[in-house]
């Protein structure tokens, strides 16, 4: 889901380090909307890839989170939950050398080209 409210002001720890956009604990926020979101098949598949890569020792949960956080503050405003996961999985696989950026770029073009 996309967040519906304005992004919070940038915050810094007392030692000057910036607090990431993901680190929202304790910030003021809007009312909790009890939204339930049925998952699309592609979202389940992203989740399945996370589980399979973890089971094969190619991904750790904190690594996935680090790559999600690495997407930057804009990712929280402009991307949905599993879009962040998907981008982070791709980044993690490139980071580990399992997949190259070139392979991913070529395959993305191929996937787009075969659409009707």
């Amino acid at each position: 889901m996309k967040e519906q409210h304005a992004p919070p002001e940038a915050r810094h720890l007392t030692d000057g380090h910036p607090v990431g956009a993901h680190d929202v604990g304790g910030r003021p926020g809007p009312r909790v909307e009890k939204d339930e979101h049925p998952h699309a098949l592609w979202e389940y598949r992203v989740d399945a890839m996370m589980l399979l890569l973890s089971a094969r020792g190619l991904l750790t949960t904190d690594e996935l989170r680090r790559h999600i956080e690495g997407l930057g503050a804009g990712a929280y405003e402009g991307m949905e939950y599993y879009e962040r996961w998907c981008a982070a999985l791709a980044a993690a696989m490139i980071d580990r050398g399992v997949v190259t950026a070139d392979e991913l770029g070529r395959k993305l073009a191929e996937v787009a080209a075969r659409e009707p």
């Binding site: 592609w42 598949r45 992203v46 890839m49 399979l52 890569l53 094969r56 190619l58 991307m79 949905e80 599993y82 879009e83 998907c86 981008a87 999985l89 791709a90 696989m93 399992v98 997949v99 392979e103 991913l104 395959k107 993305l108 191929e110 996937v111 787009a112």
Partner: peptide, 18 residues
């Protein structure tokens, strides 16, 4: 991102990761 999911999954299957 739906295309990226397809692309990443197909690459990883081609590499026999799963």
């Amino acid at each position: 991102y739906q295309r990226m999911e397809i692309a990443l999954r197909e690459i990883l299957m081609a590499k026999s990761v799963f």
